[in-house]
Amino acid sequence: MSLDDTVQDVADRLGVPLVVLDLDLKVAAYSIHDTGPRRARLAGLLAESATPLTESLVKEHRLRTAAHPVRILPDAESAPLVVLPLRHENRLLGYIYYLDDRDDRADRETSDADDMRLLESAGPELGMLLALRLSDLRRGAGRSTELLSALLGDSATARGESAQALLREGLIEDVEHYSVLLYRTPDPHPRSLTRLAVEATLEFTTRSTTVKIVGGVLGGDGVVLFPRPVNRARLDRVLARPGLEPVSAGVGSAKSALPDAVDSYREAQIAYRASAADPRRYGRRVFWEDLGLDRLLLELPFDRLTPDQLPVGVQRLLASPQGVELADTLEGYLDSGGEIQRTARRLNIHRSTLYHRLDRIREITGCDIADGSTRLDLHAGLRIARLAGLWPRE
């Protein structure tokens, strides 16, 4: 029997729904929930809005080392919670539990102790089946990552073959558009956060829709392949999860053929670089379609760029004692099309302060900032300096 069949069989014998969780307290299997309150409870569990078994209860009742079912009374108003750790070959894999909400307790032929013995007797088989389920999931994830790596690699032949395999094995849908979402975690934060972001995206999508997506970690990149454009609001919900605050995302445009997803991947990498280079403008997630001229600028070899390659006026400004303030002012002025009132609002300063700073900029740079060609040089130079990390520090 499968894990699902065995869980249902034990639940029928107990007369109460059962839920199996993995070590992260994520749902691995569950039996039929046959009443309105039970279905509502299951829906809350699947949506992660409510869970009877928490990490604090695991620690408080030492469930990781328990050898028998443990009966927990969370509070006077809640139904008793019965939890059995599931092991295979002496390795803890997860838990099975039920909330004893049965209202026919006095009429039942079996006692609470009998029920706990029944659950315990099923433990070894449930542990073995859970081990098989988790092993299958790991193999499936490994296969997905292998095909995803080939799809986004350098070989056109391998891209075509992996695209066919992804479709043939039902790992992704055969549709009209494919787009790539990229996650990265900057130093000194642990790279494991990148994997957590990918897993959170896969989990969120699986729970909220039937759309099939593929994800994995390729080098330092967390990559998720979608059979459609990436939804901005849903991406924001994933990034808002506690613990993922250091993670940023870049999103490529939708491509019409699966082998062309490699181009969306390249765009996603560039979009991420925009977020890393200018978080003030872009925030934590950047879509390729939002980049504008930065699409071209971010292709420059910034690792070989030096300050003396910038326009002379920009060099002088960035090297001045008030470099941060004056560079921000000039950038805001040029971003605002040279309009004084609009620039003052953007920078949140008084117009007289702005006039004073502009005079200092003219004096330091030796440039006529009213001249169109000069403005173009200064604007492009400042933008490249910011993206290349040559902006003066506070």
Results as ranks from 00 to 15, higher is better:
Leu151Gly: 01
Thr157Lys: 14
Arg159Gly: 00
Ser162Tyr: 00
Ala163Gln: 01
Leu166Cys: 01
Arg168Asp: 14
Arg168Phe: 14
Glu169Ile: 03
Glu169Ala: 03
Leu171Gln: 11
Ile172Tyr: 02
Glu173Pro: 00
Asp174His: 12
Val175Leu: 12
His177Ser: 15
Ser179Ile: 05
Ser179Glu: 07
Val180Thr: 09
Tyr183Asp: 05
Tyr183Pro: 06
Arg184Lys: 12
Pro188Gly: 00
His189Val: 07
Pro190Leu: 05
Arg191Asn: 13
Ser192Pro: 04
Leu193Met: 05
Leu196Ala: 15
Leu196Phe: 10
Val198Gln: 06
Glu199Asn: 12
Thr201Glu: 11
Thr201Phe: 08
Phe204Gln: 15
Phe204Leu: 12
Thr206Gly: 15
Thr210Trp: 10
Lys212Trp: 07
Gly216Cys: 06
Gly216Ser: 09
Gly219Arg: 03
Gly219His: 09
Gly219Asn: 04
Gly220Tyr: 13
Gly220Glu: 15
Gly222Asp: 08
Val223Arg: 02
Phe226Arg: 03
Phe226Thr: 07
Phe226Ile: 07
Arg228Asp: 12
Arg228Asn: 10
Pro229Leu: 06
Pro229Asp: 07
Val230Gln: 03
Val230Lys: 08
Asn231His: 13
Ala233Ile: 10
Ala233His: 12
Ala233Tyr: 10
Arg237His: 13
Leu239Cys: 01
Ala240Pro: 00
Ala240Gly: 06
Glu245His: 09
Ala249Gly: 06
Gly250Glu: 02
Lys255Trp: 11
Lys255Gly: 04
Ser256Ala: 15
Ser256Thr: 14
Ala257Glu: 15
Leu258Glu: 04
Pro259Lys: 08
Asp260Ile: 02
Asp260Cys: 02
Ala261Ile: 00
Val262Leu: 00
Ser264Thr: 08
Glu267Arg: 00
Glu267Cys: 03
Ala268Leu: 04
Gln269Asn: 09
Gln269Val: 11
Arg273Pro: 04
Tyr282Arg: 07
Val286Ile: 09
Trp288Thr: 09
